[in-house]
Design a protein around this nucleic acid. Structure first.
Lengths: 211, 211
DNA sequence: CAAATAGGTATACAAATGTACGCTCAAATA
DNA sequence: TATTTGAGCGTACATTTGTATACCTATTTG
């Protein structure tokens, strides 16, 4: 029952990843973490870090990827809920807010590195958000059959606003959380409505030229 | 023609402020600056820093305040332009994008500290953004006479989207900048349109109960 | 079973940081 | 004019950092 070398290594790797994630908070950004700090928290020697990651940047990108996975799981859950209860906007926003409450550490990372100092990080976070945006745009396009470009612009605005609401949620008392959620929902409804009006003209143009 | 003591002190203070601002870039956040680094850039001794600021946080908050002043100047300019050429949305977005091109250092600061690790910083940036939001909400309320709460929610969404477009602009080639601006304008139009539809019902309710 | 491999550690060092202490000397005050 | 004040500097020190080098030892390989 001795663990294989690969298994043991993976285990330590996870120690590092979890330690880094644990250290993230509203008062602590990833870029402010030192290598030694992470290894200390993980309970290993500083040098052991290098057996798993080239440097802190590589670990960071790994964390962003992990965050992306968590986000996509969330997305799947939201889709399920939408099928069950209808109301895309309401369900999406609420699911996202629940996610932030449940795993804030991941959100700290994504929120900050999205506008951080490392281009690699910014790109990585942006890539994760694109999954959301594309998926949402698809949904919009299917149910409303807008032009693709319009749907994407709309989806992007929505994701940004929800993300922003999440950021605000971190600083607010639980009592205000509901209000905040409602605000985001209202904003998304504005967009949905507005985009609908704007695309209506072009949509009919398209269908008549298609016909 | 010898400088008074107070004048000299103010001069050095500016050296520090300007040095810090100069060090900010897409690759360098305020929180990553060291006190020594700033004084080195300013051309003074490390210890002299303390004659002007308690610590780096105090300097940072000063910078945010300065940034706020710059923003409000910009806002005034935008208002003037709107009077001249009409089209609130188009003019506002373009003015803001010009600002980011012209003084990106201030924007680096606001962008990052808005979601940074210091509550004091987050509050400071939020306060600066509120000026924008309130002003915009006032404008909306006056020209469209919506309920106050609705106007504010709408204004907030708009400011966030413009701010976000600014952040994206930092990473994009000058050629793509125009496209990005147009995207933001479209998003704001969605919101304006959508909010209009939504508030229409309530607006008539109000005026009939007033009459 | 013997040899090679590789995850983990201990020690060590140069670099950088925040800041305490004490000094200088020009401007302000009395 | 004599005294006080305070901005700016130089030195110093403890702390933390990333990482180079060498070593140990359990697993894997031949």
């Amino acid at each position: 029952m001795t663990a294989s070398r690969a298994q043991q290594k993976e285990k330590t790797r996870r120690l590092i990843i979890d330690a880094a994630l644990r250290l993230l908070s509203q008062e602590r950004s990833y870029s402010s973490l030192s290598l030694r700090e992470v290894t200390r928290e993980a309970g290993i020697a500083p040098n052991s870090f290098y057996r798993h990651f080239e440097d802190m940047e590589e670990l960071g990108l790994t964390l962003v990827d992990e965050g992306g996975v968590a986000l996509r799981q969330l997305m799947r859950k939201a889709r399920q809920r939408i099928r069950d209860r209808g109301s895309v906007i309401h369900t999406s926003v609420e699911t996202f807010m629940e996610f932030i409450q449940k795993s804030p550490h991941v959100f700290y990372l994504l929120l900050r590195e999205r506008s951080g100092t490392s281009l690699a990080f910014r790109k990585a976070v942006s890539r994760e958000l694109q999954y959301f945006i594309v998926e949402l745009a698809d949904y919009i396009q299917q149910t409303q059959n807008y032009p693709t470009a319009d749907a994407k612009i709309q989806a992007e605005a929505m994701v940004i606003l929800v993300f922003n609401a999440g950021a605000e949620a971190l600083d607010c008392k639980p009592a205000e959380l509901k209000l905040l959620t409602e605000k985001a929902i209202t904003q998304l409804r504005y967009i949905a409505r507005g985009a609908d009006i704007f695309s209506k003209g072009r949509r009919t143009e398209l269908s008549s030229s298609d016909a």
